[in-house]
Design a protein around this nucleic acid. Structure first.
Length: 492
RNA sequence: GGGGGCGUAGCUCAGCCGGUAGAGCAGCGGCCUUUUAAGCCGUAGGUCGCAGGUUCGACCCCUGCCGCCCUCACCA
């Protein structure tokens, strides 16, 4: 017998079948949302309605039983009285807490004024073979909550609410870009060359074509091909995959928003980001931009602070020149950073991250990043060592990344080739020549943006861990994992 | 990968100095027509994460392993 199934529930299941009833019928009388009868409840007294949902714990008084019925909109008490349910009464114990039911009855109240559906007809909609978690603690074990999210969702209202909020956030992000006449598009997840970010990819294989493929680490290079193609304003909200560690702010697959707008530069995109946050503040946070995240208050209502990358670097690392490899190395050692096998620009950025990022409570735009760590961004006309790029930080966390897109195909090819000089497993093994070719056909000046939707949701819902905004975060499997061979021949 | 913490009944948790497993809720049987953490009486439920070791005796001490959480590292 499967672990966790109570034997008596199987007996109940048999009893239902023995009585000639289907414990898993295809259809039952459909009802209305619970919340819809709770509004103006007094005026509805005496109405007959049908409600469908999951039963809570039954409070049994012999000839009278109470239980709450929960659907996604809310919950209401249901009263089962022998005198109103003569036909059903002998079968009543076949329905237990956590079963899914359809109840028809008359709206009324109890002596204490509790809104109650006084049942006149009860239909078992689906038999639950496992009980719900204990009623007032719910499911609290973190691991169980992630592994059995389906239980977490019906047992913990706050969990349900935060995933509803996530859905609303994504909807409003779409609404914002749609309102600006952007086109939502979909680009390949399976890519022969990975690019658009620096990250280790997941590798896979296509059998029929006999081809190695990568799960995308970013949609960037495909979206910009669409800008070349004249689509002018595009965005994509989709999953990207990075074969890296997990932490409270990293999940190996996560959701990225990327948008590209022709004829815009990074200043315009900065305004778009502020517009997006104003929109989200109005639609998701009900007008107040204040959120609590990791026990600190943040005001997400724009405008945001702004600071130049190199100025912040200089503030925290006085008399260290970002471009002076020797000085940077000395500083990195002083900070206890790993300096071996690091490209000069990577090390310099490590120093930035070690000394500056935690100070960026924000929201703050950090802008004008060095070109060496910005291979896809356009250089500043006044200073070719620096690019028209900004990142948005809140709570020391990188939320977004944007720049004036590099559209000079020759510069682009040289930067790709420069990357290969410091090649590591985060660098593609080859230059994406097709992307360079696309640029050769001419890409209008454009501003692009990437925002991590999961981190945005963390912030807007006050969730300290990314796993609280990802429905099914990646976990190890519990049984002995078979050797990860292509054919998976190992028996569990 | 390093450090710290955790893992006991379906759920939430106790379990002392090493002496042989406990409670509440859920379940089952019974009483009860206004409860809402219902109540009362009775009952059942355990590979104490896994595997070794020490010991007359291990949930407890030791070693290894597995899983989760936090943290550091890694991660533009």
């Amino acid at each position: 017998m499967t672990d966790g199934i109570a034997n008596d529930r199987l007996e109940k299941l048999q009893a239902v079948r023995a009585a000639g009833q289907d414990p898993f019928p295809a259809r039952v009388p459909r009802g209305q949302p619970v919340a819809s009868v709770l509004t103006d409840f007094d005026a509805r007294t005496g109405q007959t309605v049908t409600l469908c949902g999951r039963l809570g714990q039954i409070r049994d008084f012999g000839k009278l039983r109470f239980a709450h019925l929960q659907d996604r909109s809310g919950s209401i008490q249901v009263g089962f009285q022998r005198e109103r349910l003569a036909a059903f009464w002998p079968d009543r114990k076949r329905i237990e807490g956590n079963d899914l039911v359809s109840v028809t009855g008359e709206l009324g109240t109890t002596q204490k004024g509790e809104p109650t559906l006084w049942a006149t007809d009860v239909v078992l909609a689906s038999k639950a073979l496992r009980p719900a978690p204990e009623k007032w603690h719910g499911l609290t074990d973190t691991e169980q909550r992630y592994r059995m999210r389906y239980v977490d969702l019906f047992a913990n209202g706050a969990v349900r609410d935060s995933f509803v909020r996530r859905s609303h956030i994504v909807r409003e992000v779409r609404a914002y870009f749609d309102s600006l006449d952007y086109l939502e598009v979909e680009t390949p997840i399976l890519q022969p060359i990975f690019g658009g970010a620096a990250a280790r990819p997941f590798r896979t294989h296509h059998n029929a074509l006999g081809m190695e493929l990568f799960l995308r680490i970013a949609p960037e290079l495909y979206l910009k091909r669409l800008i070349v193609g004249g689509m002018e304003r595009v965005y994509e909200i989709g999953r990207v995959f990075r074969n890296e560690g997990v932490s409270t702010r990293h999940n190996p697959e996560f959701t990225m928003l990327e948008s590209y707008e022709a004829w815009a530069d990074y200043r315009d995109i900065m305004a778009r980001v502020e517009g997006l946050f104003a929109h989200l503040t109005a639609k998701v946070l009900a007008g107040d931009g204040k959120v609590t995240f990791r026990e600190r208050q943040y005001d997400l209502a724009p405008p945001f602070q702004k600071a130049r990358y190199l100025d912040l670097f200089a503030q925290q690392n006085p008399s260290v020149d970002w471009f002076d490899h020797g000085a940077v190395t000395r500083r990195a050692r002083e900070l206890g950073l790993e300096t071996k096998d690091k490209a000069p620009h990577t090390l310099a950025n490590d120093v930035f991250e070690a000394t500056v990022e935690d100070t960026l409570q924000g929201p703050i735009f950090v802008y004008d990043y060095p070109v060496a760590i910005s291979p896809l961004a356009k250089r500043l006309a006044e200073d070719p060592r620096v690019t028209e790029r900004f990142e948005l930080f809140v709570a020391g966390m990188e939320l977004g990344n944007a720049f004036s897109e590099l559209n000079d195909p020759i510069d682009q090819q040289q930067r790709f080739e420069a990357q290969l000089l410091h090649k590591d497993d985060e660098t593609p093994g080859e230059v994406d020549l097709d992307y360079v070719t696309a640029l050769e056909f001419g890409m209008p000046p454009a501003g692009g943006l990437g925002i991590g939707i999961d981190r945005l949701c963390m912030l807007l819902s006050g969730s300290a861990s990314i796993r609280d905004v990802v429905l099914f975060p990646l976990l190890r499997r519990l049984d002995a994992a078979p050797a990860a061979d292509a054919d998976g021949a190992t028996q569990p």
